[in-house]
Amino acid sequence: MRKVQQRARRRQKTLVILALIPGALFAGFPVLWMFSNSFKSNSDIFAYPPKLFSKTFSWSAYSAIFGDSEKVRFFINSYGIAIAVTILTLLVSIPAAYTFSRFEFRFKKTLNGIIISLQGIPPITLMIPYFALIVKLHFYNTYQGLILTYMVFTLPYAIIMLTGYFNTLPRELDEAVKIDGGNAMTALWKVLVPIAIPGIVTVGIYNFMICWNEFLFALTLTKTNEMRTVPVGIQLLMGQHAYKWNEMMAMSALGCLPVLVLFLFFQRYFVGGLTSGSVKA
C-alpha cells in the first residue's frame, strides 16, 4: 500500500518537473545564449549549425569592452548615477516617511494621496516638459539633470514603502528618546533607522534598479557619449557596430551583473518588497 503511494508521488513529481521544463527553457535559454555568445568569436555566433559551447572560448569580448574607455564610461556613469540617486532618495524619503508615520498635520491625507497618484503618471508624458525644464535649468547633458529626474521616480514609492515600514515599528521607541530630551530627528536617525535597515536596504535596492534600468530619460536628456548610461550605450552599439555581437553580449552580461548580484544576495527582500509595494523596476 505504502509502496503504491510512494510510486504515485514519485510519478507526480516527474510529471510536475516535465511540465516545468518547457517554461524553464523559455525563461532560461535566452539568458544562457547571451552568456555563451559573449565567450565566442564573432564568426562563431552565427555559425551553422549554432553551438551553445564553442571551441573558441575566449574572454576577448570582455577585454575589448574594458579596453574601450568610452564603454567603460557608460558603466561609470550608470553606477555613479544609480548610487547617487539611491543615497539622495534615502536621505529625502526617510524623514518624509517618518513624518507620515509619526506626525498628524493638515493636508496629510491629501499629500499622501498625491504622492501615491504620482506613480501613475507615464514617464513618456513627462518626457516633453522635462526636456524643456532641464534645458531651461541648464541641466541638459549633465549628471544633475539625470539625478534629479530619476529621483522623481524613486521618491514616491520610497516614501510609500518606508512609511509602511516605519508604521510597523513601535512608537514607544521614539517616545523614549523624546522623554530623554532628544528631538524627533535624533529619534529617527539614532534609534529608528538602525532598526529599519532591512526595509531601507529593500528600498535602496529598488532605487538602484530603477536607475540602472532607466532608458527614456537617459536617451532624451543627454547628448554626448561621455554622458550616456549603459542602456543607451548598448543601443548605440547596436547602431554603430551592428555585427560585433560578441561584444554586445559581453556588455549585456556586464550590464545585468549588478542586478543579478543584488538579486542573489537579497532574494528574500526582493520577493517581500515586490508584493508589498507594486514596484516594477
Partner: peptide, 24 residues
C-alpha cells in the same frame, strides 16, 4: 530560472531578442 527574465534591463532584453530572432 523562472525569475531570470525579470533581472534584465530593457535595453538588454531588446538586444538579446534581436539576436535570437535574427533571420539566421
Amino acid at each position: 530560472i523562472y525569475i531570470l527574465p525579470w533581472i534584465f534591463t530593457v535595453a538588454i532584453v531588446a538586444i538579446l531578442w534581436r539576436m535570437l530572432l535574427d533571420p539566421v
